[in-house]
């Protein structure tokens, strides 16, 4: 989504978000991420207004003090930015890709099933299976920090069964234009 992104052409405008809308966003984030309200309060203090940065193709980035903290596509789920995810790695469920896939992920490719189901990969066990359309943190084999943020296209159990095609659609990854952008 952010493979090519330049602030001067792709941003339509900055607008402060209404308090009522902020309240609903806060509730949505709390319900979607595994995060306590106190921690969210530390990331995004109640007193600080959220700024909505509208971008092309219905992407909205929300910033606090100019620093992007999460983003949304249409009215889908909220994704944390990768920098935020590095700071709070537990907020999203984790999937792991094998080492062979890292190179492609860093070039912006979506993650295919075999990369997740192979020996180096990791998918949550059956009792903690994720449905399709869940935001996930993409980790890599043998690495400590997340390498990308994505959304599942198949349920995790389905991935194990089908083992073919796109499993996780990459939203933002290490080294893309959103990563380069430290402040908006």
């Amino acid at each position: 989504m952010f493979k090519k992104f330049s602030p001067s052409t792709d941003i339509a405008g900055h607008t402060p978000v209404k308090t009522s809308v902020q309240r609903s966003i806060r509730a949505a984030v709390l319900s979607q991420w595994k995060i306590e309200s106190e921690t969210l309060e530390a990331i995004w203090p109640k007193k600080e207004g959220l700024v909505l940065v509208k971008c092309r193709e219905h992407v909205s980035i929300y910033t606090v003090h100019g620093e992007p903290i999460f983003l949304q596509h249409f009215d889908g789920p909220f994704f944390p930015t990768l920098r935020l995810l590095h700071k709070y790695p537990y907020i999203l469920p984790m999937v792991k890709v094998d080492r062979g896939a890292i190179r492609f992920l860093l070039a912006g490719a979506h993650m295919m099933c075999p990369g997740l189901t192979s020996a180096g990969g990791y998918l949550p066990p059956a009792e903690a299976a994720l449905p399709a359309g869940t935001p996930v943190a993409i980790h890599a084999e043998g690495k400590e920090h997340a390498v990308g943020v994505g959304i599942t296209k198949l349920g995790t159990e389905e991935m194990k069964k089908v083992n073919k095609g796109v499993a996780v659609e990459t939203t933002t990854y290490l080294g893309d234009d959103l990563w380069v952008l430290k402040a908006l």
Binding site: R26, S37, Y90, H139
Partner: peptide, 25 residues
Amino acid sequence: MPKKSAQPPPPAETEQPEAPIVEPT
């Protein structure tokens, strides 16, 4: 908006297991 969450801390299953109680992690 939930001001003070009374819910139990979510189980940390990622590689950095921290103990989120009431203090912000």
